[in-house]
Write a protein that binds this DNA or RNA. Structure first.
Lengths: 118, 118
DNA sequence: ATCGCTTATCGTCGCTATACGATAGCACAG
DNA sequence: CTGTGCTATCGTATAGCGACGATAAGCGAT
């Protein structure tokens, strides 16, 4: 693509990347599974999800590239675990972004809160 | 797609949809612009972004379908505004999802917090 | 060294997303 | 009624995502 995505502020780009990593139910389910079981073994995740092993591996790759998950190849079975710190940063980033958008002026000028607009 | 996405719990699917709506810098920038200016006019957004009018309109459509933005066609100029309530719900949903993933057992069994895993 | 189990990667397919120009629709000014 | 300006939609092209089977790669057990 001509990917206009690079034309935006880097903080928006980073937040968008994080959101993209979370934009698939399978990846959310993977995060939940990893967090629920201390177990970080890939096979367990595959058993838990209605997806093929290759697909799960790809989702894990996405999550790892997004920095939400850390993985260590411990021989036959790979070890995955949620990166709590990164996840917290993502949560903060969302709050920082969404927060300022919420404080619409209580009953002021150009707020279109009710039903009438502008 | 063969869209395995339907095979997951609906709450995950909804959160994933919200994340998908936020997964593009242009849409984040649009939300910021709509919130910053009380102005909800589409043309202003087009001026602010390095995108064509048609593209902005499509992004607005996505945001509207995701329920993050409300739009009323007030004749020549369409009126868009951030749906604060929906945005708050999304923020809460993210917190509800990410929160439980953060409280890794302080210093317990199978946590792979440090650098060693499983 | 070989087998078996687990995981990562490759190649492919179809669908979706992104982006744009061009076109159609709509309200107001004249 | 006829412009004029703004927006939505259509059509299209390219790029990327999601999914899978098949294959390769790694380590432990035999």
């Amino acid at each position: 693509m001509q990917s206009k995505a690079d034309l935006f502020p880097s903080d928006l780009a980073r937040l968008a990347d994080a959101a993209r990593a979370l934009s698939h139910p399978a990846r959310l389910a993977i995060l939940q599974t990893l967090a629920a079981r201390g177990t970080c073994v890939c096979g367990d995740v595959v058993d838990e999800l209605p997806l093929a092993q290759a697909t799960v591996s790809q989702h894990l790759k996405v999550l790892k590239q997004a920095g939400l998950v850390r993985g260590e190849v411990d021989g036959p079975r790979s070890c995955y675990c949620v990166d709590s710190e990164a996840l917290r940063e993502v949560a903060d980033a969302f709050v920082d972004f969404l927060g300022p958008l919420l404080d619409s002026p209580p009953a002021s000028s150009s707020d279109c809160g009710a039903g009438e607009c502008c």
